[in-house]
């Protein structure tokens, strides 16, 4: 058994080394340059900063445009929390129904989902519609827009997972006489946990990192989202790479925290699946 144990170490270390090289090195580059002076960062070299000023750069990133980044964090996080919660909840139900009910309606819904994946949303007609409803530019309407634009993707990943869950599980529950909402929350929801977590993470990433839609649907003062802050340091004529890189790091932090929270559950979910099998 010794040799297999060694093999685990050898292969594990090798895979770790490769993944660090491929995936971590670019971020090391970002981090190093985020600690440099403007002039030194312009050299784009992979070297230790001659003049280490990570703190100064961090302060500069926060102070830019009257602490715009703080407003941006508030807006982006609120937007992400609201839209992802609603989206994931409803999409889980919808995909369950589509997948289990079958028939013409489900086929139609399937087609719509596919279309939703294929056609990029039409910006200007959507703005006209929201104006007609009198809610254009409001925060709730932005939430609705994010929900609508990410529906297809979310249903898609839920459905592919639901199709692997044995029908007997929920059919048994129906025989037991559970009502459909009760059935859904008590029986189905726990089964969906692994994909639920994945859907939450991915949608959070999409919404939080969305640049274009908030720009159009959430105009006005104090409504910037975090992606817009990148433009504080990069304009047509001038780019402060040190601050830009620092900003990239800073605005990634919420996503890392979110990932750290849900990550354990992914693992748990997967192991559960493996054991359950």
């Amino acid at each position: 058994m010794r040799s297999t144990k060694n093999a685990r170490w050898v292969w594990g270390s090798f895979a770790l080394a490769v993944s660090v090289l491929v995936f971590v090195v670019p971020f090391a580059f970002i981090a190093l340059n985020a600690a440099k002076t403007r002039e030194e960062a312009q050299l784009f070299s992979f070297s230790w900063p001659q003049h280490f000023q990570a703190w100064d750069n961090l302060v500069a990133v926060f102070e830019a445009n009257e602490f715009m980044i703080l407003r941006a964090f508030t807006n982006s996080i609120a937007l992400t929390v609201f839209s992802v919660t609603i989206l994931v909840l409803f999409a889980a139900m919808a995909s369950w129904i589509i997948e289990r009910r079958g028939g013409v309606a489900a086929k139609l819904a399937n087609g719509l989902v596919l279309i939703g994946l294929m056609i990029p949303p039409a910006l200007v007609p959507t703005i006209f519609l929201l104006q007609a409803l009198g809610i254009y530019g409001t925060f709730p309407s932005m939430v609705l827009v994010e929900i609508a634009f990410n529906t297809s993707f979310t249903i898609m990943i839920f459905r592919s997972f639901i199709s692997t869950i044995p029908r007997e599980l929920d059919e048994a529950a129906i025989i037991d006489g559970a009502g459909s909402l009760q059935l859904f929350f008590l029986i189905v929801f726990p089964l969906l946990r692994p994909i639920l977590v994945t859907a939450i993470i991915l949608n959070s990433v999409f919404v939080f990192n969305d640049f274009v839609n908030p720009l159009y649907f959430l105009p006005g003062e104090g409504t910037e989202t975090v992606q817009v802050t990148l433009y504080n340091f990069s304009s047509q004529y001038l780019t402060d790479y040190n601050l830009l890189f620092m900003d990239i790091l800073v605005i990634t932090i919420p996503m890392v925290i979110m990932f750290a929270i849900f990550n354990k559950r992914i693992v748990a979910g997967m192991t559960a699946g493996a054991v359950k099998g």
Binding site: G12, L230, T252
Partner: peptide, 27 residues
Amino acid sequence: SNIKFRGLIRNIIFFPVLVSTIGIGIT
């Protein structure tokens, strides 16, 4: 498979998914 460090490796590989496309593009 049962290699070592697999949780860590998975996190490392997944990390770029979390970063904004614009940021990645510039980098």
